[in-house]
Every structure is written in C-alpha cells, then in structure tokens.
C-alpha cells in the first residue's frame, strides 16, 4: 500500500543539493617528550609541545571522556585542579571552550596566556609541585569513510542515529579546526544544501560541556525532528 505524502514528510525527503557523507576519525596516542610538575614547567611545555598535543589534551580528551557531563573540560584544567591543587588555575583553564577556536595555534596562545596571567598574579603558586607530573601526549588521526550518506533530512536523521560517537565528534566538534570556521559540518550542510538556516544556528547553540556526547547526539536529532514536524 502506498503511503500518503504529507507536507512534512515531503519536506523531510526534499533532496539536498549534495549528499552528506558521514565520516569518522580514529586516533592513536603517542607519548611526547614534554612533561610538567609545576606551573612554570607547564608554561614552557605548552609553548614547545607539538600542536597535536594541544589537540589531544583539549578537543580529543572531550571525546575520550564523552560520558562525563560536568566538571571535565580539558586535561590541563583537570591536572591543575587535582594534581597541582590550583583550583583557581583549574577554573580558568576549564572555562576555555574549544568551539571558540578555529586553529590550534590560537588555542595554544590562549592557554599560554591563561597560565602566564595566573603565574604572575600568584607568584607563590610557582613553587608548588604536583606529585603526578602532566605527561604531554599527542594524537595521530586517520579519517574514515563510513560509507553512509544522506540525500535528505530523513536520511540524515537516520544516519545521526546510526553512526558512532567518534563520527559525531569528528563532524560536530573537530570540524572547526578543519574548516577554520566557527561552525560544524552538520550546520554547514543543513544551511548550504538544505536551506535550513534556523536549525543550522540552533545546532551551534548546543552546549557540549554540560551534556554527554550521546546527549549532544540526542539534542541534534531533536532539533531536526522538530523541523520535520
């Protein structure tokens, strides 16, 4: 029996100008030379470490800890908090939102600035050493084709449900480094290829620091389902 085409289903099956290709990313951790046991050492290491280390300890750690929805933002903040015992520095580092950065160089600059400011305001803190050093690691990435495509909104929602959380992270969070834009792959496709401006903007308002990555996936789907209905 043929299903009656309603206005909403018709809208959700409108063909996109170009299909969305779901990709994902696999990462492998490497141990770098830099390590820090004090604020001064952290500062020096932040200045000299490879960009892949900045990526690992900020963007990538969010993916590794995607199930935590409060109190975990990046490895530098966590270490300052729990190992160095510098709650103030931990709070300042934790307040950095990776989505405000479209390059790792800019993010490094900001991290250095935060640590420098804290160190100059709290000279006594520079004498403090952590029992457990901060070990700098880096991440090597391989991008994967998932062979899943979406030609319309319904297929896109279905794809969002099926892909791994690594794929969500790749398109929704890591994308801005690749695109050098304060947006993400989903919003860009929704606007450019389906003309969904409102939904494109709404997706960028989702708070990734107060949700798990699974929660972020649900919120994206909810916004798009609201558009369908």
């Amino acid at each position: 029996m043929q299903t009656a085409i309603t206005p909403t289903t018709a809208f959700s099956t409108v063909q996109a100008k170009a299909p969305f290709e779901f990709k994902s990313a696999a990462h492998l951790l490497f141990i770098e030379r830099e390590r820090a046991s004090s604020i001064d050492e952290l500062l020096r290491a932040l200045q000299s470490c490879p960009e892949e280390s900045i990526f690992q300890h900020t963007f990538r750690t969010l993916e590794e800890h995607h199930f935590i929805k409060e109190g975990f933002s990046n490895d530098f903040a966590h270490w300052a908090y729990t190992e160095l015992g510098e709650v103030g520095l931990g709070e300042r580092l934790a307040s950095l939102d990776v989505r405000e950065f479209t390059s790792l160089a800019a993010l490094r600059e900001r991290l250095v600035q935060v640590v420098e400011e804290f160190a100059s305001e709290h000279p006594k803190s520079r004498e403090r050493t952590a029992p457990m050093p901060f070990y700098f690691c880096s991440s090597k990435t391989i991008v994967l084709q998932t062979q899943r495509h979406a030609a319309n909104l319904l297929e896109f929602i279905d794809g969002l449900r099926q892909v791994s959380l690594h794929s969500i992270h790749y398109h929704f969070i890591e994308a801005r480094l690749r695109r050098k834009l304060e947006s993400n792959d989903f919003s860009i496709w929704l606007l450019r290829d389906l003309g969904l401006e409102r939904e494109s903007v709404l997706l960028n308002h989702i708070d990734i620091y107060t949700s798990t990555l699974e929660g972020v996936r649900r919120k994206i789907i909810q916004i798009l389902q609201n558009a369908v209905h």
Partner: peptide, 12 residues
C-alpha cells in the same frame, strides 16, 4: 560496542 564501532574497526 555497537555495529558502528565494529564497522569502523573494519574500515581502519
């Protein structure tokens, strides 16, 4: 681990 993660392992 789910089908998507297993598929990714095969892709890699």
């Amino acid at each position: 681990i789910g089908k998507s993660q297993l598929d990714e392992l095969r892709f890699v």
